[in-house]
Structure formats: structure tokens, C-alpha cells
Design a protein around this nucleic acid. Sequence first.
DNA 1: TTATAATGTAAGTATGTACTTACGCCTCCG
DNA 2: CGGAGGCGTAAGTACATACTTACATTATAA
Lengths: 193, 193
Amino acid sequence: MPRPNRSEERRAELIPILARAFADLGYASATTAALAEAAGLRENQLYRLWPSKKAMFLATIEHLYDLQTRWWSQMLAESDPAEAARRILEEEGRHRGESGLHRIIFAGLSEADDPEIRAAMANFYQRFHKFIVTVLKRKPGPNDCATPPPLAAWSLIALGTFSNIARELDIFGIPTQRRLMSEVGAALAGLDD
Amino acid sequence: MPRPNRSEERRAELIPILARAFADLGYASATTAALAEAAGLRENQLYRLWPSKKAMFLATIEHLYDLQTRWWSQMLAESDPAEAARRILEEEGRHRGESGLHRIIFAGLSEADDPEIRAAMANFYQRFHKFIVTVLKRKPGPNDCATPPPLAAWSLIALGTFSNIARELDIFGIPTQRRLMSEVGAALAGLDD
DNA sequence: TTATAATGTAAGTATGTACTTACGCCTCCG
DNA sequence: CGGAGGCGTAAGTACATACTTACATTATAA
């Protein structure tokens, strides 16, 4: 007789909003009041959907991981691996992390004392790495640059991560960012055009 | 007639302690109470030496920059540039950032909304980059890998930065870390042994 | 209609934090 | 020695924050 429980759906609707807030403000500055306002709710209502602010943050990480993975998988399905990798690098260089994922990573890094948050982020990177290694290994032809795929994959991740740091700090402009990802990235991946 | 002012000396003595505390705890968790306890003082006494917690943090960044630069310069003075670069990469891989510099960088990144902190960190990276470019250009012999020095320098910085992130999150072990810095790093720098 | 739980609104609590004030002792220099 | 400032100790303030409680309103399924 009561009204149906729509908690699951509400969580799904709200997480992108929370993600944006965490990305814009960082973990510490994203106060529960700010999160609630961003969602157009009262703090109270958020706490009916998640038990704590940390839970909201962890849910955000999970959500971003899903988004990213879905996108990559789609790219992989649409074109051959080498082409997909190239396009991913290009995109990463162009609108570098507008999802705000990197800001959330930084926020998490400074909260990395918390074991749960650490674990979530480590898991994120491990799966990211595995994915890229798979892509690199599927690449046809001989490996000219001779960097083994696992090492090359970590290097690519490093380039992407630092690019976002650099953007955050206005260290270098978009052209440099793009060259970093496409030139150096392509060399590391063994895609020489 | 009063006693002489030893503020300058006390600041110099305390900064390494503050640096350690910021590195261990992160900016937000390094409360003024915690900083004072680490220094064996009362919060009060810290505030007699610096006007704010932010000032303590900025002083910390400056101090670490000086430390790092001194070390590099020394390496450069002792051996030829190529050898110095190789040794720096090796060292960076070995005791990867035990100074805690990287943790302070992360702490700063999530506080990067603050323009002063952003500026201090951007300045840090810019000077770092200039230094590495100089080293790379001094390298004798033809550049086989053909990555232009500025781009290669950013790539090296990216590798070092991400190595520290990876360490923070226990993403990969020391061997991988060392190979990342020496193999990929050396390839980027054009040092092939 | 009606009981029931979901939802909305508002106020409150306990705690932590950056930063301050007050005060007394100690040390150096004239 | 004497006093002006350096130094140590302690308490306090104003505010922000994560999280809670209380209660009214609404929508549903029987």
C-alpha cells in the first residue's frame, strides 16, 4: 500500500550530479551541504540514499569507471584495436578529461589514507592497465619500439594522468597536451604513422 | 635590550618537520594542532612564525623545491649531463620520492582552487621542466629517438609523477617502478645503453 | 478510502578547525 | 640590574561540517 521504493533509480539519477560536484570542488570542499544543493535536495535526503559522504564518493568513482570502460569498449568494438587506441589517445588529448575524472582522482589521492578509497582507486588503475595491455597486444605487425606492452601501458597512463595535472595547473597549453598524447603516446604504443 | 629575534632560524628548523607532516597527512588532515604537535610546539607558536596555515604550506613547497634543485645541480656538477640524467632517473626509481614531495603535490592539487597554491605548484613544474630540457639538450651525440627535448622532458616528469601515484596506491611493485623510470625514461631521454 | 511507507522541510547536535587572547616566565643588552 | 621583548602555556572564539531527529505531506496498493 505504501508508495514504491525508487531509491535505486534516484541514486542512478543523482550520481552524475554528485560526480560533477566532487570534480568541481574536490572531496573536502564538496561539503554535504554543497552536494545537497547541487542535487536540489536537502542533506537529509542524500543520507537516505547513502550512509555517508564517503559512500557517495565511492559510488562516484565506480560510476566514472563504468562510463570510461563503456566508452573504450565501444571504441574497440567499432574499429580495429590500433585505430581504436589512436582515437582514444586523440580524444584524451582533445577534451582531456572533461568528465572530471582526474579531479576526482586527485581528490581521492589526498584522501588516500582511507583504505577503502585507496582500494577503489587502485582497482580503477589496475583495470585501466589491463584494458590497455589487451589493446596493445592485439596490435598487428612487429613491435618496432620494443617496449613491452605492460610497461608501455603504464607509460601511457602516466602521460594521460600528468596531462590532466598540467591542465589543472595551467602548466602548458592545449597544443603541447595534444602532442604529448599523440606523438609520445603513439611512439610508446608502437603506432608510427 | 630584549633577547634577539631568532624567528628566521626557527622557521628554517621547523620547515622540514612541517614538510614531513604535510607529506604524511595531506593538507586537509594536517591540522594546525597536528602540525604543532609534530613540531613539539603549541599552535600559537607556529602562528608567531607564519601568518596562516597556507603560508606554512607554501613555505614547505618552496623548501622542497630548493632541496630538489640543489640535489640535481650537484649531480650535474659532479658528472657529465648524460650520466647525471641517468643517475637521477635511477635514484628517482629507487627511493622514489621519500622526501614526500609527491604527497605534497597531491595535497596541493586538491587545494588547487587557491590561486597562490596553484601558482606555486605551476612554478615548481615549470622550473623542473626547464632544468630537464637543459640537461637533455646538453646530451652529446645525435638524437636517435627524435623526440624533441621539451616534449621528452614533460614525458619524464609524467613518468616520475605517476610512479609516485602508483606507489601511493600500491598499484605496482618496486621492480616495475624501476623499469618504468630506467627503461622507458632512458628511451625517452635518448640514452640507450 | 485508508494504512503505510516514501518524500519534503526544517531545525538541531556534536565535533573539529583555523586562528586569537591573555598571561607569566625567561633571557639578553644596555 | 632592570626592563623590553622573545618564549611557553593555556584557554577561548567563531564558524563550518558530517550527520541526526522530528514532523508534516504525498502517493500508492489493497
